[in-house]
Design a protein around this nucleic acid. Structure first.
Length: 617
RNA sequence: GGGCCUCUAGCUCAGUCGGUAGAGCAGCGGACUUUUAAUCCGUAGGUCGUGGGUUCGAGCCCCACGGGGCCCA
């Protein structure tokens, strides 16, 4: 659907362009993923020598079990991580975390790891001092047998759980409850015989660890001071207490570096520079709460969309991303090559033509959320790869699909933020609630320029208007619809702030949309504008295969005139349509743009790992 | 495509009139058993995006290129 518009920036893909999410569904259920996913397969194989031919139990709440199992297997080669893993014999026997506190939780049972040899390529003088120092600390931890990258640590509690469970303690009150916690060190304060460290988990929850000379002993405390840095993953086991200053803390009886960081953390009190945030999102996620929040909000939003669609009986499908012929939108595709068949393939610019094939086949309420690729510019609202939701509803039309779209967006706002009045990044509020405005393209344009413009208005006159208002149009694409669209964007598009459906577009702009049921020259299409940009588009789908063929032929003529975004005739798609697709409403919505609409962030903030131009060194 | 801004220590940034480069954080050494961006003493750290040019002398002026941002088309 949303394809044909050939206008400028927003029009290009406007509606259908969102962002990205790494596709790794197979990673979440390793036991089931052995057949179709090569990644999972290789993982299974790699593991099988330690634990037999089947997968171990689901991730054990008692990491020691895993340790025991892992260390029983013969290490095939030098594997420092296994050798470094220390474990408690007692815990291994019982499979539980000891309640009484052993002096040393970990004892090295195998010391096969040779002290890491200095790597001449990296341990030389031209690495920054801080990296050299941290590498030396890593080497020392390994040489001492403490380990810098143990296989596992006996973590028993999440940080948030400890904080909640012991929040009631009085200042300075101590318990005898022993917990094991882990997180990244984000603060260290050393007052001599007592050290404080704050560890942070992936959600940004922080917990204070206290290490005293009396509790851990001189050697352990000295090692902590010497070898633990900001940025390291730290495990600590000890009693849950509340400090004299009222902070829930773990009073460590033992600790371990869970993973040594070789690079220093950036200053946590200042945001990273914009460019660094995007290029090193992993650092951004550690350092900036909004980055963490956005990644989680995106996940909530995706789940909300899927839940809303599933609850309405829609079925999610996946359609080809590698296509022999790009279609479903007016956009330039990426081209790639398939060696086996020695043919060029196109990365899809839209899923539309395949979703309609699915509708022909009887998947009548169907949707897909996935990536599209458009070989066009990249700026603050366009990414070359973006995620889009497309949905088709048999026996619906552009009105019912508009209602669905409003419900989806409002539901997402509700699920992510608990309200339909969202607070944007700049602090302003934006109201997505209520019934959204409906205007028509010709009506709103006529009103804006003060004279009646209709589908009958001549191209010559529209060209005059464009000249008068200094609206430039690519000469290769001049036609009634294109001129209307450009004039409309110039006069009306920029003025829309509240959520607004703009309905009834010129036929030339929408080759996959059916003619209006009562108005000649326009098609049943809307664009949804939110905060001034195009968020979604919806159609009463064109299902007459004869008219569809004519529209394609018209597009082919536009292509012959030099319009490189014109659609190409897709014979197999027409064949499918000749089996008859039920009357349907369809919509496409940019997922990245939806998150932008909900948060006020730029597209590079809503995409976890946006494409960035490589630096030149 | 056009205009403007920007690139300096691991990070965030200052750097005046062209005169051999600074701060905070983090790092290193030391002190400190309740800190919260701890504090105190000491200390190390630089291809100033890259390449040219002007100049006795360039982080600074000029040109080109590269990365990023903003605004326009």
């Amino acid at each position: 659907m949303r394809a044909s518009r050939g206008s400028q920036a927003p029009a290009r893909c406007g509606s259908r362009r969102p962002a990205a999410s790494p596709s790794r569904t197979c990673a979440t259920s390793p036991r089931r993923a052995s057949t179709s996913c090569p990644w999972a397969r290789s993982r299974t194989r790699a593991r099988s020598w330690t634990s037999g031919s089947t997968w171990p139990d689901p991730p054990s709440p008692h990491p020691f079990r895993t340790v025991g199992r892992a260390t029983r297997g013969a290490e095939p080669a030098h594997r420092p991580s296994a050798a470094e893993c220390r474990r408690s014999d007692r815990a291994q026997l019982t499979g539980t975390v000891p309640r009484s506190t052993p002096r040393r939780i970990f004892t090295v049972t195998e010391q096969t790891a040779a002290p890491a040899p200095a790597d001449p390529a990296t341990a030389t003088d031209d690495v920054p001092e801080q990296m050299r120092v941290r590498r030396e600390k890593r080497d020392r931890l390994i040489a001492d047998g403490r380990g810098a990258y143990p296989v596992t640590v006996p973590k028993t509690h999440e940080i948030a759980d400890v904080k909640a469970q012991y929040a009631h303690l009085e200042d300075g009150e101590e318990t005898q409850d022993v917990v094991g916690v882990a997180g990244r060190v984000v603060f260290i304060r050393n007052t001599g015989k007592l050290c404080f460290a704050s560890i942070q988990d992936g959600a940004g929850e922080r917990l204070q660890i206290m290490l005293s000379l009396a509790e851990v002993g001189e050697e352990s405390l000295a090692s902590f001071k010497a070898d633990v840095d900001l940025g390291d993953h730290l495990f600590a086991q000890g009693r849950a207490i509340k400090s004299r200053r009222g902070e829930v803390s773990v009073f460590a009886s033992d600790w371990a570096v869970a993973a040594k960081a070789l690079r220093p953390l950036p200053t946590l009190h200042k945001d990273l520079a914009e460019d660094t945030r995007v290029r090193q999102r992993y650092v951004d996620l550690i350092a900036r709460p909004l980055a963490r929040e956005t990644a989680r909000n995106r996940a909530t939003m995706m789940r909300s969309l899927r839940d809303s669609l599933h609850s309405r009986g829609f079925i999610e499908v996946e359609t080809p991303m590698l296509q022999t012929q790009p279609g479903g939108a007016a956009a330039r595709p990426f081209i790639t090559h398939m060696n086996a068949y020695d043919i060029d393939l196109y990365m899809r610019i839209a899923p539309e033509l395949f979703l309609k094939r699915a509708a022909v086949g009887g998947i009548e309420k169907v949707f897909e959320i996935n990536r599209n690729f458009r070989n066009e510019g990249a700026d603050s609202s366009h990414s070359p790869e973006f995620s889009m939701l497309e949905a088709y509803e048999a026996y619906g039309d552009y009105t019912t699909i508009g209602r669905l779209t409003q419900d989806l967006v409002q539901g997402a706002a509700q699920d992510v933020f608990g309200t339909q009045v969202v607070t944007l990044a700049d602090g302003t509020e934006y109201d997505l609630g209520g019934e959204w405005a409906n205007i028509t393209m010709y009506g709103s344009l006529s009103e804006a320029i003060g004279e009646e413009i209709t589908p009958e208005t001549s191209v010559a006159y529209l060209q005059q208007l464009c000249d008068r208002f200094e609206v430039s149009v690519d000469p290769k694409r001049v036609n009634h619809g294109k001129l209307i669209e450009e004039l409309w964007e110039h006069h009306v598009g920029d003025t829309l702030t509240a959520p607004t459906f703009v309905r009834d577009f010129p036929v030339e702009t929408s080759p996959l949309t059916r003619d209006h049921r009562s108005i000649d020259g326009v098609v049943e299409k809307w664009d949804l504008y939110v905060r001034g940009f195009e968020l979604a588009t919806g159609y009463s789908e064109l299902v007459d295969p004869v008219i569809q063929r004519e529209r394609f032929e018209q597009q082919a003529r536009m292509a012959a005139q030099g319009d490189d975004e014109a659609m190409r005739l897709d014979e197999d798609f027409l064949t499918a349509m000749e089996y008859a697709m039920p009357p349907s409403g369809g919509m496409g919505m940019g997922i990245d743009r939806l998150l932008m609409a909900l948060t006020g962030l730029g597209i590079r903030e809503t995409i976890l790992f946006p494409l960035v131009k490589p630096t030149d060194d």
